[in-house]
Design a protein around this nucleic acid. Sequence first.
DNA 1: TATTGTTATACTCTATAACTATA
DNA 2: TATAGTTATAGAGTATAACAATA
Lengths: 171, 171
Amino acid sequence: MVVTKSLASRVKPARMQPKAAAEASEDLPPNLGELADLLGYSLKRAQLRVFEDFLRVMTPLQLTPAQFSVLLLIEKNPGRNQTEVASTLGIQRPNFVTMLDSLESRGLCVRLRSASDRRSHVLMLTDKGRATLMRAKKLVAAKHEARLSELLGESNRVVLVQMLAKIAREL
Amino acid sequence: MVVTKSLASRVKPARMQPKAAAEASEDLPPNLGELADLLGYSLKRAQLRVFEDFLRVMTPLQLTPAQFSVLLLIEKNPGRNQTEVASTLGIQRPNFVTMLDSLESRGLCVRLRSASDRRSHVLMLTDKGRATLMRAKKLVAAKHEARLSELLGESNRVVLVQMLAKIAREL
DNA sequence: TATTGTTATACTCTATAACTATA
DNA sequence: TATAGTTATAGAGTATAACAATA
């Protein structure tokens, strides 16, 4: 690639690359350089890849990672209200309303008026929600986490999760 | 995020969970349960935390992680066109236009018409771009990556990056 | 007065189709 | 015909203010 002189003169030339000596870099993909050592960069790329694989595996059940986490949390903590579940997952309460609308309209969970505090909605899984979640867990374990375990080795996978949890907790 | 930091940092997460979480913890935060073992979950939470820290450290230079990665890639691979840089970073070409508009309007980089193919724009850093990037690198190394290294230990930090890169590459 | 769920809204990211100018 | 950069646009995800019902 040659640069027109009048335009190029506006910037300091970063060492003219000899056309023939441009060797590998002319037709090969760009070099990541220091980007490859940046934790945030590999973290983001890995997260996108993992979510992509999660969605692929979960296609038959049509559950996003966020929806799956909501169902898991309600199952483990039945009777909690929207504020509690949302804040545990780092979801803003207004945004959680739409998420719940979706899950409830699919018959996976219900909002029940609390008798002790009539402002709050107690969250519970339906039978269908429990059944769907059980199928989802099996899919995730058998096709998603298993694939990661195969790629990294199970002990490394566990170490990885613990390091990530530590970052989320303590950074 | 409603994660209590000071307390959580002192407590090693117990792998054993009480059988019925609902009864015992009416006033405690909900139990994450199986969520804590899901790689995708800790991956996402860690990624948000790391980007948050990056933005905090980068406040004086007003560079997002994405903008920083673009500047790094242009510095390392001067003379590449928009399509090459964007696709290397996993950015859609239409979205890259706005990003470049922003960086170019701040005088950090320039688009030059290629003489060999007048359709494409060759990307280069300006002097200001190089200076800003150098300051940014120093901030990231001294305040951001150093903090992660302190948290995990440098050798663990390197291992973590390599595992994440492997996921991004091979999953 | 404070809190729960909700509505409205806005801003960022991301994804796709289609246009233009070049090849 | 195909490609590079661009425009327009639409869909997620996320953040904040404010309101009604309830405490």
